[in-house]
């Protein structure tokens, strides 16, 4: 790793060229409009360009309501772009879901209330019509710190534990692409920090192409290789920067001036993005 821990931006905004890739996630000139009543429509995204290289962890930062989650839903194949192209590995995003190679953790954990934690994590196997790999499920539960809670039902767990179960479920089939939509949004600061550390550890073990949507600057800096800041609605890319802090980024990293410098810059960017909204 280089000694320059953070490439702090001098001129704003700078659009760094995205890494050249043949696969990964690519959004080109993507716009999304939601029809409202009487021929009016809400433009959530406007000409957005975004690329995530294979094995890269990109965090998408933006003020609330800027269309971050819309980007994620487009990449997950849950919605269609009004204009522009969304490709995952050079193909329509829904294809990846159909091949059971997509892992998604939503803002809401979406655990099935009638199933045990173990069954919830095993759900992707069953949906894909594959035999449940019990060892894999056990490993994942241990990985997210839920060993011993296999037979609990979601309602018996705390919010943080449910989110961790949802992340274990997202990882169950060894996805090629992982999408995280503020998976820790509902958690308190301490739990959130702990979850960030766990996610970083999980990700360092198997570098999955990951797109994380968040409004938490610390979280983005701790986890991502690259951070993309969006403007307020309609969402566009306002700024992109690479995080050069060496991994693993432990608690000590959060006390370094590099970390704070980057967090401050990005926070300022979010503030001004809010004003344009």
């Amino acid at each position: 790793m280089t000694s320059t821990a953070v490439r702090s931006p001098q001129r704003l905004p700078i659009d760094r060229p995205a890494p050249v890739t043949g696969s990964g996630i690519a959004l080109r000139g993507v716009s999304k409009e939601y029809p409202l009543k009487r021929k009016t429509s809400l433009r959530a995204l406007d000409g957005l360009d975004l690329e995530v290289a294979p094995g890269e962890f990109v965090a998408l930062l933006g003020p609330s309501g800027c269309g971050k989650s819309t980007v994620l839903r487009l990449v997950a194949g849950l919605e269609e772009a009004s204009a522009g192209a969304v490709d995952v590995e050079g193909r329509p995003p829904a294809q990846l879901a159909r091949e059971h190679r997509l892992g998604v953790a939503f803002q809401e954990h979406a655990l099935l209330p009638w199933a045990s934690i173990r069954s919830n994590v095993a759900l992707p196997f069953q949906v894909a019509g594959r035999p449940v790999d019990d060892r894999r499920v056990d490993d994942l539960l241990r990985l997210v710190g839920l060993g011993g809670f296999e037979n609990a039902r979601p309602k018996q767990l705390s919010g943080g534990m449910r989110q961790r179960a949802a992340i274990a479920r997202a990882l169950a089939l060894d996805p090629d692409v992982l999408l995280l939509d503020e998976p820790f949004g509902a958690l308190d600061a301490v739990t959130r920090r702990r979850m960030n550390a766990e996610l970083a550890r999980i990700w360092s073990e198997q570098q999955i192409t990951t797109l994380l949507v968040t409004h938490d600057v610390d979280e983005a800096v701790l986890l991502a290789d690259r951070i993309v800041v969006m403007t307020g609605r309609p969402g566009r890319v306002r700024y992109t920067c690479t995080v050069d802090i060496p991994r693993p980024r432990g608690a000590d990293v959060t006390r370094t001036p590099e970390f704070h410098g980057l967090v401050d810059t990005l926070t300022a960017m979010l503030d001004s993005a809010d004003e344009t909204a």
Binding site: G77, L78, A97, H100, A110, P124, V127, A128
Partner: peptide, 22 residues
Amino acid sequence: SQSGRDLFAVLGASTATTLRRL
């Protein structure tokens, strides 16, 4: 719930599976 439907969609579930399991 919408989140449940989204989950089954991103898991690539068939209509029959979504009906049965969700």
